[in-house]
């Protein structure tokens, strides 16, 4: 076999099986990774979400079963958190987009003639990743704590009423979410705007379109791929985030999201089936929303 493969007259079919084997060998690590760290945990998650309490009645002990009740339990109990998660994710994604777009446009289009500045700005966008995001969120907790200089100032100028505190509020959580996830919006937007061909914009203005019209009719549709990947890359992780909303960071008991409840059910209440059901619900909703979103934006405007 090996002899024939190296022979000068090796038939094509053998050449094909050989290259087929090479492809398989190259794919194997990825496939093993996927099965090990995605398929198996997913199946295990779904199975756990259907488990029933053990007959012993002890906390944290469950037996395999088919208890659909876990799902109705979490949905009825946690619907405010579910709604809040997607509300926060929606809001934080929109705010990130509004902040990122002009920034990415500046870096990707306006700074093109100055490559040094462009590289520096991209580095600045990525820079926060060099520090753990837990640390950075804790730092914000200090900065936004009651009686911190920023808050003193906010009280002075009347942004907050005298007894009001910012930390622990829904606004603080959304602020943290935007802060933590905004690079995931800026970078894809930048990549797509950096490739934007200025000549299309010039052609637009040559064809009587005002700058605003050129933006709406040409720049925006041409940067749609960046907008879609940016919004997905922020919306999905934000919907499942459990750090920012947590009491230990920027939130309070009034700001808990799905992730917070999964965390609580899993680590404190040791209600593994409920936590799993919650995760499956989160995944299901995201899957439905994303499919709908990609369909809607994808077929019409995406090239």
């Amino acid at each position: 076999m090996a002899f024939a493969a190296f022979g000068s007259s090796a038939p094509t079919t053998q050449g094909q099986t050989k290259s087929g084997r090479v492809v398989l060998a190259l794919l194997l690590p990825g496939l093993i990774y996927l099965v090990l760290f995605f398929v198996i945990p997913l199946v295990s998650l779904v199975l756990t979400s259907l488990e029933a309490p053990a007959a012993s009645g002890k906390i944290g002990e469950y037996v395999p079963g088919f208890d659909i009740g876990n799902y109705s339990y979490v949905v009825t109990k946690y619907w405010p958190q579910i709604a809040r998660s997607f509300g926060f994710a929606f809001l934080a994604t929109i705010i990130s987009l509004l902040i990122s777009y002009p920034l990415a446009y500046f870096i990707g289009v306006k700074a093109r003639s100055r490559p040094m500045l462009q590289r520096m700005l991209v580095t600045l966008v990525i820079a926060p990743f060099f520090i753990s995001f837990l640390l950075r969120t804790i730092a914000w907790k200090q900065l936004l704590a009651d009686h911190s200089p920023i808050m003193e100032w906010a009280h002075q100028v009347g942004l907050l009423s005298p007894s009001q505190s910012f930390i622990g509020s829904e606004a603080a959580v959304v602020f943290g979410l935007v802060y933590n996830f905004i690079p995931f919006m800026t970078l894809p937007l930048y990549t797509s705007l950096e490739r934007l061909d200025i000549r299309f914009l010039e052609a637009g203005s040559d064809l009587y379109a005002s700058p605003a019209k050129v933006f709406r009719k040409i720049t925006l549709p041409l940067s749609m791929p960046g907008i879609i990947s940016g919004t997905l890359l922020t919306f999905i992780p934000i919907a499942g985030d459990y750090v920012n909303a947590s009491r230990d960071f920027l939130g309070s008991s009034n700001t808990s999201m799905i992730g917070t409840m999964v965390d609580a059910d899993f680590l404190q209440n040791r209600n593994y089936p409920a936590a799993s059901a919650m995760s499956v619900v989160l995944m299901g909703i995201i899957l439905i929303l994303v499919t709908w979103y990609v369909r809607k934006s994808g077929t019409e405007d995406l090239l």
Binding site: R199, F200, E202, A203, G204, D206, K213, L222, D301, L303
Partner: peptide, 18 residues
């Protein structure tokens, strides 16, 4: 440019791809 009574046939065509 958009207020000039002028139109251009660009060397690179610059047709809108979308």
């Amino acid at each position: 440019p958009h207020e000039r009574p002028v139109n251009t046939v660009f060397q690179s065509y610059a047709l809108f791809p979308h």
